[in-house]
Design a protein around this nucleic acid. Sequence first.
RNA 1: GAUUCCGUAGCUCAGCUGGUAGAGCAUAACACUUUUAAUGUUAGGGUCCUGGGUUCGAACCCCAGCGGGAUCACCA
Length: 574
Amino acid sequence: MQLLNEQEIERRKDRESLMQLGIDPYPALSYPINASAADIHKNYENRKNDYKNISIAGRLMTRRIMGSASFAEIQDSSGRLQIYVRRDDICPEEDKTLYNTVFKKLLGIGDFIGLKGFIFTTQTGEISLHVQELTLLSKSLKPLPVVKRDEEGNVYDGFTDPELRYRQRYVDLVVNPEVKDTFVARSRVISSMRRYFDDHGWLEVETPILQQVHGGAAAKPFDTHHNALDIPLFLRIANELYLKRLIVGGFEGVYEIGKMFRNEGMDRTHNPEFTSMEIYVAYKDYNWMMEMVEDLLGQIAQAVLGQTQAKVGENTIEFAGPYRRLTMFESIQEYAGVDVSQMDEKALRAVCADMGVEVDDSMGKGKLIDEIFGEKVEDHLIQPTYITDYPIEMTPLAKKHRDKPGLVERFELFVNGKEIANAYTELNDPVDQRERFEEQLKLAARGDDEAMAMDEDFLRALEYGMPPTSGLGIGIDRLCMMLTNKSTIQEVLFFPQMKPEKKVQVATDDDFIARGIHPGLVPAIRELNIHTLDQLRGQNPNKLFNDVCGKRKKLKLEAPNPTKDEVENWINGA
RNA sequence: GAUUCCGUAGCUCAGCUGGUAGAGCAUAACACUUUUAAUGUUAGGGUCCUGGGUUCGAACCCCAGCGGGAUCACCA
């Protein structure tokens, strides 16, 4: 049961009327299509002879009715096409019902229709379809927001409320064409990335989403339970440790593009489920990986934008490599003016205090350096920049630097002040790896709730031997944000997570009748804005009695007035 | 999680100092055979987010809640 507004009631009546005319509003059929709106606009001028028998389908989006002729627009997945509908063309016989009643009165904006006819150019120069045959394919019962655009492309009655746009993305996609463009771009980002990896011979794989140990990253997981095994399970926060097991197993290049789940806060750059790409290639190190990433991102930008530059907010980003490389210590030296490379924890805390960087007691040396970096450096890294050689404490899965003690071979790629990729020369020494996990356990004991958990099976795999390997992770959503110039993650996710929509449980007529209300009085109850049984229960009996009798008179209802006792019984449910 | 702004017709938004709820588009009716933000005339459409409070009187003031945006914190 739902409350219908005026326009929804009207459309339901139209649906009934169509059926009475013998027209199925939802016919079961295949409608053959031989052209799209975009194809017609692109090719009609040069190949006019090919557009004399067009069959096309789409959603009716506007109508301009002028007596016995009308202009309208339909929208298919490629765009819009103006159609010209003339009464005597679609109704060549005596009976003009199809035009006068069906097209003019019973169809509405949002309905799917199929059309046959020929393409021509109107006096005002618009390429249009002259309709000879019209078929209703699906009736729309809810009114679409009507977005108007003038010749300059100015939008007049936009569908702009972010809440409605995200909750009803289907409507957003119908009326805001640039939204569709964003998601087409997203799809191209992923497909061009996949093509790049496949062309290099690396294998796309799938690893468990339901995991018994949530490893590979520092984050809070979603937990669930498997009934048959009676064990707790977690949605993965990362897939790194599984992909490395596959390298142990003998694959020389594996990658996975998939959803990760983190039970943390949400904002314009975080959604509880997000898409990441992780790739591991054997016999490589992080220097090789930096060159690969430059090549990859240049090619993706080219595939998505047709060029390697992207406008992101105020900035123009050049994705073609090579990218600038800075060690973490160099970057802090450059942007914060401090050499932290030789500092111990105490000295670092003093530096943080100096700079007004907030810290707490659970933070180790690595975390403190990361805080300084985040506060002072990140925002400056606009053009793609590799930050390399991180402190060992904050990177338990990366190999120790080949000649810089206390550091690991890791880089992060920053673009427009945001991290979009993270890569290591992977740690493959099982003894070192066990020690690193143990260090993490100590951090956990100290209060760091993001410290990584020990994964014994992963250690066992490493003990069998993993070749030297470089691994990379890219946040797909953020990459898409950059390449589509969007500032929120919601704009690149079809269905971003939202708080539940509050749903009022509207009572049906039968619900009211079951409480003893005379069927003829239900309209009076609804007229009083009592739509749920809860609302009914909250009524004052005397007031309700008076109101119902008043409404009965006003609405001229046939049903007899209730007695006061009856009204009390409605409320008490007796 | 904190701060702050917002919630009025299907959509986009007005609504003065607290005094009978408004517009454009959409919808309905009539007219109109090349319009394109079609046009002209007319009509209907509201739980002013919800619940309390103040007041003779609340869309408006106060309190609480729900939902959303922005900023900040954490994380990718």
